[in-house]
């Protein structure tokens, strides 16, 4: 039987309570809004990409459930210092992880600590909570003017 603790791992509970990189960056050159109309989660991602295409800094603001808060917090930690190209690869790997078959193993090499969110694939109605921040990050990097919606 699936244990709720598999979804709400201590790392997730901790990142929800104490989100990292929360708030507006003092210097940023990209930003985007994300909104999940189903549950009302709102996110704003700030991104500072340097001349070499590296994510010099990234932060987020917003409110939402533990899955969306923790996912955004973990994402900012994981993406700081990575190139935009790498970010796109991790984005794809993350999408795969949360929508894969239940017995598929996540791409640990690419995802690292982000694999704590693999449990959401057990909860179809919650996958969007985990992916909202990633879509918003990608929209920020692409300078998409429209609000990212998960619906």
């Amino acid at each position: 039987m699936f244990d709720l603790r598999d979804l709400y791992q201590q790392v997730i509970v901790d990142h929800n309570k104490h989100p990292r990189n929360f708030g507006k960056l003092s210097r940023y050159n990209h930003e985007a809004d994300g909104y999940n109309p189903l549950c009302g989660d709102r996110l704003h991602v700030y991104l500072d990409i340097d001349a070499s295409g590296r994510i010099a800094d990234v932060s987020f603001e917003g409110e939402g459930c533990a899955i969306s808060m923790a996912s955004a917090s973990l994402m900012t930690e994981a993406m700081k210092g990575r190139s935009v190209e790498e970010m796109r690869e991790v984005f794809d790997a993350f999408q795969r992880m949360v929508t894969d078959d239940l017995d598929a193993l996540p791409d640990e090499e690419r995802l690292g600590k982000l694999t704590v969110l693999a449990g959401v694939r057990e909860f179809p109605s919650r996958i969007k909570c985990a992916t909202l921040c990633w879509h918003t990050l990608k929209a920020a990097a692409d300078d998409t003017a429209e609000v990212v919606k998960t619906e």
């Binding site: 709720l4 979804l7 459930c65 533990a66 909860f123 919650r126 909570c129």
Partner: peptide, 8 residues
């Protein structure tokens, strides 16, 4: 959050 509560 209410959505976490719903899942739990």
């Amino acid at each position: 959050h209410p959505h976490d509560l719903g899942t739990i």
